[in-house]
Design a protein around this nucleic acid. Structure first.
Lengths: 258, 258
DNA sequence: CGGATGATTGAGAAGTCTCAACCGTGGTGG
DNA sequence: CCACCACGGTTGAGACTTCTCAATCATCCG
């Protein structure tokens, strides 16, 4: 279970990025039991409409949440990197309309809802930390709505690359200037609401202008500032700002220290 | 404060639609204190990036959450009808990247975070109900991503009208066949990622095909089935399904009864 | 070597945007 | 009470982005 521990530790790190938890609470998170499962690329981790009794922690690989259209088209609406509990909200809403799919070969840890509910019941600060994670998800989704609704193809792609770069860097899995992002151009198209053909041309544009290079699913951002400018990227919506909160004390950290 | 009570009651109804709360918990929600404020159309209820110490309950009117682009373009990513606490997540994330704007003349009740935190600390079931509300928001946002990313103009508008119809009907503020929706075509455009001109033509199309009629911001849906079909509308994502949950018992209602 | 998958290219079609004008209505000031 | 103004809805024409379809190329793997 060594690898399970490593993944739980990543998950805890993610929680601690936005919420303060004390030693007991951290221990409780690390004490979660889980069952590892591996998924091949393009296989469903959770099928649309499925009712689940566990949440999925991405231990290795890359997963995405998606919405399926009647004509078979697909729209991705989130990427889940290592340490993300992609299904955390299923604790309170066990039947979701969306599905979760493995982008690359992906190992997930299935954590029983019963255990998560127990945590939430025993530690109010964890309940609020989980709620805060959900709010972060919503904030990212809202940004995606704007990105897809109001930006052209080039900016959409640039924005997605900026987001993934910052998230991966924050999670300690790479840097914003070089990270591993194992998606096909067709997947990218499904994420930004474009066609694979058009994504191809726009990526050529970004490469041609010297903003990025791509080598076998490694993204090298050679000119971060220009990429961020093309994307109108402002990381505030990732809610990584200073306001880390301690909920048992019912006070923001800053207020508590003062 | 009679009108404040009415609004809190609508908010409680909304919570009870997806979560089971006992008499104490209901009483606690209804006992929230609040300060009413009125906003004229197109005025910010919450400005982008603002840090707030209260949440906003829409008591009368219509509000929308939005993302502002650098060139002044705007993308709406949610509508908030009467009884919606549009800012509930600000309890755990007081600084949001988005703004909230009044669509029509709107009265909101500002509820201090301190009170909401107290509720959440005292009643675990309320904490989970709030988390569940946030999850619902995220589910709707995810659907919007798909709607904007993967559907054409006509379907996007049809989907928005279906969503608002069902939400308004569920909230008891109208029916899906006739409801009040006080937005300009320009607002609609900002919601579905189109141009006001194109929204105009598409609305003419929906009217011309006999699906809807519009009269001074009243929407009459004359052919719901066709509208839903044009939209590929499936209300599951609104999470209004049967699975109402009682969280103190840590069991879904169905399981508890069984 | 053969086959599969993903990236790339080209050309024409379609959907949506832009700009500019005009119309209808409700509110306002003289 | 009326003229005027502002705003929102409507229309037209041309431009531009993105899509569609189909073919070719490159790489990986058995």
């Amino acid at each position: 279970m060594a690898s399970n521990q490593a993944a739980l530790s990543r998950f805890l790190d993610r929680l601690l990025r936005r919420s303060m938890l004390n030693a007991d609470e951290c221990g409780a998170v690390l004490g979660l039991t889980s069952h590892a499962r591996q998924f091949r690329p393009n296989f469903d981790i959770v099928s649309p409409g499925e009712t689940v009794d566990h949440s999925c922690l991405v231990a290795h690989g890359l997963a995405a949440r998606y919405d399926q259209m009647a004509d078979g088209q697909r729209q991705l609406n989130a990427f889940h990197i290592e340490g993300d509990m992609c299904d955390l909200h299923s604790v309170v809403c066990p039947t979701a309309a969306w599905g979760i799919i493995a982008m690359t070969t992906t190992t997930v840890l299935q954590v029983p809802h019963a255990e998560l509910r127990k945590l939430v019941g025993e530690y109010p600060a964890i309940a609020l930390a989980f709620w805060r994670e959900g709010t972060t998800e919503a904030s990212i989704l809202a940004k995606w709505v704007g990105n897809i609704g109001r930006r052209d193809a080039r900016a959409r792609l640039a924005h997605l690359l900026c987001e993934m770069g910052v998230r991966i860097e924050t999670a300690g899995l790479g840097t914003r200037n070089h990270f591993w992002f194992d998606v096909t151009q067709s997947n990218l198209a499904d994420a930004v609401g474009l066609t694979a053909v058009h994504v191809n041309r726009m990526m050529q544009g970004l490469r041609g202008d010297g903003l990025i290079r791509t080598m076998s699913h490694n993204i090298y951002v050679d000119d971060w500032d220009s990429l961020a400018e093309a994307a109108e990227f402002d990381p505030d919506y990732l809610l990584l700002g200073s306001g880390k909160m301690r909920d048992s004390g019912q006070q923001p950290l800053a207020a508590k220290i003062a």
